[in-house]
Design a protein around this nucleic acid. Structure first.
Length: 556
DNA sequence: GCCGTTTTCGGCCCGACTGTTTTCAGTCG
């Protein structure tokens, strides 16, 4: 089992223990162990071979034995035993907003409900309110929550599907009969939510390749096996399709299978794709069609084809353009790494600068900083800056926007910092007018440089709060405040649609990782994909600018 | 369940809001 799979199982053990109302510290121990394994730098098997699993901080004898069993047998007997008491469907119910462990268990005990579909039915039939302690609002929240989930039924976040797609592709590329292999479809286009994982393979011996595909250990179900394609389900119920072509038509097939349906219908109109054989790159395929090369993220038929015909496509931002990360949490609040460790990782990523932006005091669970600790952190950052000469650590904060639009710190305190991100972490349910006013209030504050995760959405979990986007964009332009593309794959907020609009208003963007561990810094890749889907160029993004220019922007 | 030690047990564990209540348990960031 991989680190990710082990972490997931440990997390599920924690959930079941919590449902069973076991000692909350025991729950926490499993939760922390899951987190540790997830963030581990190395493959857990390396520790296993050295017999060092129990030496990982937070992992003791019991959990280590559990992990070893998972590595050796591919499953955990402890987990299996636990699911005899607590059906796994309860874990799905937990994913609904407002449904915690106590509520899920209460409903299970009273009505025997152990899956989301039955839960929805019970809510619609007003059965939930009959349970002591629960009422109509709970039913309403269940119905609303299920609407959100059903909207994206069977779809997975890019954060889940992209790593799985890469792993699958790499496995397939190892097949001796495979000549070329590529991720295609919506994953390659970088959509934040995808319906399935599509892989294109080329080769001559389809039968041999197909046997190799079928042998993949990640496949949970195989439901289609045709001459030139195989389909089924991977882990997490994610659908997949593997498409086989002859090497001569690989690049044409790459264009065909990557584009949205609308895109390929448009560009292949009147053209027989099978006539486009023997080409050696996507560029030449597009050339034959009279187009400049259109990057995968743009292939949605929303105007890019016309630009490609005219030769006026934008030059999209890429990883090499990004010069720093402006939203990072350290162990001074709820992050898991020291500033020193983060600085070292940022240096290795080739960044010229980075900002430490921990939470402010009104978020106590996150260990939010008060004025004193913020000042103390500043001293530490000064020391680090004195030691490092090839990267600049900026002093920042992710300051909470309070209900009335005021900030959690005084202007004086904020003025001492290099960079201020203002974010909402509470009162998600204000109406559109109030929420918009609240954010504009924050934008107007001269200390604020960036608005963090504008709509608060959590993909597949929590919808965005409603805001009047044009008004916010106008205010941001007027007060020289950038909007964040929060790169966490559960957020990707602002989304590609909004990113596409900012240029019209003259608003700048910051692509930030919001990393809580140095291993999460790479998440910026998801943000870059979203920015590319929003047609953004390096010029539009403040952390693609060199440090002097960035500092000028921050001071304005 | 993990950890650390004044070392084999006792501590770990915040606070505001929500929904259901009528004094508070549960959720969530």
């Amino acid at each position: 089992m991989t680190n990710r799979e082990i972490a997931r199982t440990l997390d599920r053990i924690a959930d079941i223990l919590q449902l069973k109302e076991e000692n909350s510290f025991k729950v926490r121990a499993y939760r922390m162990a899951a987190n540790t394994i997830y963030n581990l730098d190395e493959d857990i098997k390396v520790y296993y071979e050295k017999n060092q699993i129990a030496e990982i901080p937070g992992i003791g004898k019991t959990v280590s034995a559990n992990i070893i069993e998972m590595l050796e047998k591919g499953s955990s007997e402890y987990y299996q035993t636990l699911t005899e008491d607590i059906p796994e469907g309860l874990l799905d119910m937990l994913l609904l907003p407002g449904m915690g462990h106590k509520t899920v268990k209460l409903i299970y005990d009273h009505l025997g409900i152990n899956n989301r579909e039955d839960l929805l039915k019970a809510a619609q039939e007003q059965q939930i309110r009959k349970i002591p302690g629960l009422g109509a609002k709970t039913e309403y929240n269940i119905i609303k929550g299920m609407e959100l989930i059903n909207q994206n039924r069977g779809k997975a976040t890019l954060g889940l599907s992209l790593p799985m797609a890469i792993e699958f592709r790499n496995y397939l590329a190892d097949c001796p009969q495979v000549v070329q292999a590529s991720i295609v479809g919506s994953v390659r286009r970088g959509k934040s939510i995808v319906g399935d994982i599509d892989i294109l393979l080329s080769g001559y011996d389809f039968a041999a390749i197909k046997s190799w595909v079928i042998a993949y250990r990640g496949i949970k179900d195989l439901n289609r096996n045709e001459m030139d394609s195989i389909g089924g389900q991977l882990d997490y119920r994610i659908n997949f399709e593997v498409i086989l072509v002859h090497p001569d038509s690989y690049y044409t097939a790459l264009v065909w299978t990557t584009g949205s349906k609308s895109f390929r219908d448009q560009i292949f109109t009147g053209v027989d794709p099978s006539a486009l054989i023997g080409l050696h790159s996507e560029e030449t395929v597009m050339q034959k069609l009279g187009l400049d090369y259109i990057p995968p993220e743009m292939r949605e038929n929303t105007g890019e084809i016309e630009l490609a015909r005219q030769g006026t496509l934008p030059v999209l931002v890429s990883r090499q353009d990004v010069k720093g990360d402006l939203h990072i949490h350290s162990d001074w609040s709820d992050g898991g790494s020291s500033i020193q460790q983060i600085a070292e990782s940022c240096r290795q990523m080739g960044y010229a600068y980075m900002a430490i932006t921990d939470h402010s005091k009104s978020l106590p669970i996150s260990g939010g900083l008060n004025e004193e600790r913020l000042a103390a952190q500043g001293v530490v950052i000064d020391e680090i800056n004195a030691r490092l000469n090839d990267i600049k650590v900026l002093k920042g904060i992710e300051v909470d926007v309070l209900k009335n639009g005021e900030l959690d710190f005084s202007d004086d305190t904020l003025n001492k910092l290099d960079i201020v991100i203002a974010s909402i972490h509470s009162h998600f349910r204000l109406d559109k007018e109030q929420q918009t006013e609240r954010i504009i209030q924050a934008i107007k504050n001269p200390q604020v440089n960036i608005i963090g995760h504008l709509t608060g959405r959590l993909l597949n979990r929590r919808g965005p709060y409603e805001v009047d986007l044009p008004r916010i964009l106008e205010a941001a332009a007027k007060h020289n405040v950038a909007l964040e593309i929060n790169s966490h794959p559960d957020r990707l907020d602002i989304d590609d649609f909004t990113a596409r609009k900012v240029k019209d208003y003259g608003v700048k963007v910051a692509i930030n990782s919001d990393a809580h561990h140095y291993n999460d810094l790479y998440m910026v890749d998801y943000g870059i994909l979203t920015a590319r889907r929003g047609w953004l160029e390096a010029e539009d993004i403040i952390n693609c600018w060199d440090l002097p220019r960035l500092l000028t922007f921050l001071k304005e």
